[in-house]
Amino acid sequence: MAEISFPLPDLGEGLIEATVLDWLVSPGQQVERNQPIVELETSKSALELPSPQAGKVVRIHGAAGETINVGEPLIVFEVPDDTAGIVGTVPKDEAPKRRVRLSAVLDED
């Protein structure tokens, strides 16, 4: 299994930090992509942050009321090794299929 850390993203308008209002997920929980994971408040607005990916939550950073800077770790997911790549899909090792048969008279000289 691989761990993927997700840092607090820039929430817009150049704000450099956000305060955790409430965590909507907890360590050990399996989350889906785009599922709301945390309520945050910036000096402009309060918002729900969607999960950037599917995975099991390993750690969350910042209790309710604490402030996190943009770029600091927010949440860490655990994912299977072969889904940890970010671009493309993982080829499946399938049983080889064939339509062509070989025929040859081999002279073993």
């Binding site: 493309g88 299929k97 064939r98 339509r99 062509v100 070989l102 025929s103 040859a104 081999l106």
Partner: peptide, 24 residues
Amino acid sequence: SGDLEDEYIPNIDRILFGIQRVLE
């Protein structure tokens, strides 16, 4: 692009055909 790459990358049958051409 991805949907067509199985038609592009040498597959098992194309390699077997290549072997057959040499054997023949």
